[in-house]
């Protein structure tokens, strides 16, 4: 399957030419190439299908700038409406000229773009740091550490004065 890369500036023109040739756009999704060693971090990957020639091709479009952006092709292929919104939602790629570029899968007030590679799963980084030991007074919590000479029952409460302290060996 042939793969071509198009710069953001040429994308709209290229899309029009492809549409003229009879290509259908079947899929559009974002790609964060952070760990792939590409020059450009954010890309949009389009899968095109030609029903008469029974061919497929893949077009990568570089999204440049901050936030990464490229022109929307919604006027060429109206089907990209949801797909571009998804790419925006998941990667923060903005599509210039899209009439309704809002979050589609995540809630509107969500922060961050979850499919970016630097977006942690679970969002909050979990760090295992040794916490100072906290004594809990509730009898239902774990028993207090034993002090020498003091017998505690299973709930950690100090047993009655009986039996005498010298009998406790452990």
């Amino acid at each position: 399957m042939p793969v071509t890369t198009v710069a953001a500036g040429e994308w709209l023109e290229r899309a029009r030419a492809l549409k003229e040739e009879g290509w259908w756009l079947m899929d559009l999704c974002g790609l964060d190439a952070l760990q792939l060693g590409h020059e450009n971090r954010f890309q949009v990957v389009c899968q095109l299908l030609h029903s008469e020639r029974k061919e497929r091709q893949t077009v990568h479009v570089d999204a440049t700038g901050e936030p990464p952006s490229l022109p929307s092709v919604i006027e060429v292929w109206p089907t990209v409406d949801f797909m571009e919104r998804e790419a925006y939602d998941m990667f923060g790629i903005t599509f210039e000229g899209h009439p309704n570029l809002t979050r589609i899968l995540m809630p509107d007030e969500w922060e961050g773009h979850p499919l970016r590679k630097d977006y942690g799963v679970g969002k909050v980084a979990i760090e295992f740091i040794a916490q100072p030991y906290v004594q809990i007074d509730s009898p239902l919590q774990s028993p207090k550490p034993r002090e020498a000479g003091v017998r505690t029952d299973v709930l950690g409460q100090t047993a009655k004065a009986d039996p005498p302290a010298e009998e406790v060996t452990s």
């Binding site: 790609l31 760990q35 990957v45 899968q47 089907t79």
Partner: peptide, 26 residues
């Protein structure tokens, strides 16, 4: 459709599924 990217590792780098319901809903 499934669009799969590998970076040579033992887990997928990116998996995207073109779901027909998603597109047909438009």
């Amino acid at each position: 459709g499934a669009y799969v990217v590998s970076d040579g590792g033992s887990s997928p780098y990116r998996v995207h599924v073109r779901d027909p319901s998603f597109v047909n809903l438009q």
